[in-house]
Design a protein around this nucleic acid. Structure first.
Lengths: 207, 207
DNA sequence: CATACTTCGACCAGTGTGGTCAATGAATAA
DNA sequence: TTATTCATTGACCACACTGGTCGAAGTATG
């Protein structure tokens, strides 16, 4: 029963969740191994199946948790009232990069869940996930003040071009940061470079 | 011995190669199953190990073959004498998309080979692969006439922005095309749209 | 008929799977 | 103290699948 798991002391709980997320982040459901999870979490095999009835139940618990975390972070970063497209993208990009840097396993885990062809998750969770993706899109592209864009290129194209450019920039940055650890100050300097990059994009694509 | 395999009638040979490439395209080396390969190729298990001594030998044969195909296509599409950046990118994009559409398994297979952390392939093959990647980069970015670019943005940044934009466009196009089959005429219309898109990029990033 | 080559798939030992359960330890209640 | 309850372990289970082997059957050629 999950009850027993919830009343566990925080550190052991975290160890188990981290180990499980890590395993499911690196393998699809079928390939993920409960043996490796208990080993990494440093608990006996029996305990895992005491807390969660089956591998599937564990998986659903993790998906639920991941969705909660993401939904929480989401409102913190995305400002749908901001009419400037690039400014709104700024929040979205920060969200993505922060999640990636702070919780890389969670990031990959959600990726795997989405990727899983035969959806493993019950309808309710699937709908929440889909809603999250849908909201992500609409909250990025709707209610934008299009009049700021240069008008020799259709607004839709401008938004796509800007998105792709930011995506490319983010990927390059992530590759550069890969494996490094950062003090706050250094991270700040990367954000400054990013803001400068966004200004370049404004110069290119705004009137 | 590979000799016996090479003297096989073409259709059976193709069936085996296709099945094997397909399997290694969808799984990493360890996860790829010789059982599934022989099943898909409709041959007995014994035959596979008659033609190739081990799974590893089969794998290396496939990598070699894939490299040959890629090297051949490569010279056909990339014109290093073209000084116009976007024109050169055009060839590269066509190469990528054609390979993806015509030989999607081969495309993914090479991806898996590159991805494989502990390199499975002998040094000689590894060097060929690395050379291919290296050449791919240098032949895209060196010898470009930078004077065409607008000069309020560093040339390096312009090239990156253009690359990212084309990449994004390609990904969107591929998603749109996913699963569809095309007669030549329809494909042409997509290329025309692509050329128009490249003209937009020229308008944006060239003087 | 004999010889050689092709083809098959049952079989091998090994590894790993999700899940169980008898046994022990530890804590609490009487 | 003893009795009871719950936490915890890891050996163990049946099963699935692995890369690779090999004896036998089939086929072609001499």
């Amino acid at each position: 029963m999950v009850k027993a798991f919830e009343t566990l002391d925080e550190s052991k709980k975290k160890r188990i969740i981290d180990a499980a997320i890590h395993e499911f982040a690196e393998h699809l459901y079928e390939q993920a191994s409960t043996n490796r999870i208990v080993k990494e979490a440093r608990i006996g095999k029996g305990m895992l199946f005491h807390y969660f009835e089956t591998k599937q139940a564990l998986y659903e618990y993790l998906v639920d948790r991941a969705l909660n975390v993401m939904e929480e972070l989401y409102v913190q970063y995305i400002d749908v009232s901001e009419p400037d497209f690039i400014e709104r993208m700024k929040g979205s990009a920060k969200l993505k990069m922060d999640v990636y840097r702070l919780h890389p396993d969670l990031f990959h885990f959600i990726g795997q869940v989405v990727l899983e062809k035969e959806s493993r998750i019950p309808k309710a969770l699937g709908e929440r996930l889909e809603k999250m993706q849908q909201d992500g899109l609409t909250s990025l592209f709707s209610g934008i003040d299009l009049s700021k864009f240069r008008d020799d290129i259709p607004a839709d194209d401008v938004m796509k071009l800007i998105s792709w450019s930011i995506e490319g920039y983010g990927k390059e940055l992530l590759a550069k940061l890969d494996g490094q650890t950062f003090v706050e100050l250094e991270v700040d300097s990367y954000w400054h470079e990013f803001y400068a990059f966004l200004d370049v994009l404004k110069r290119i694509y705004y009137k």
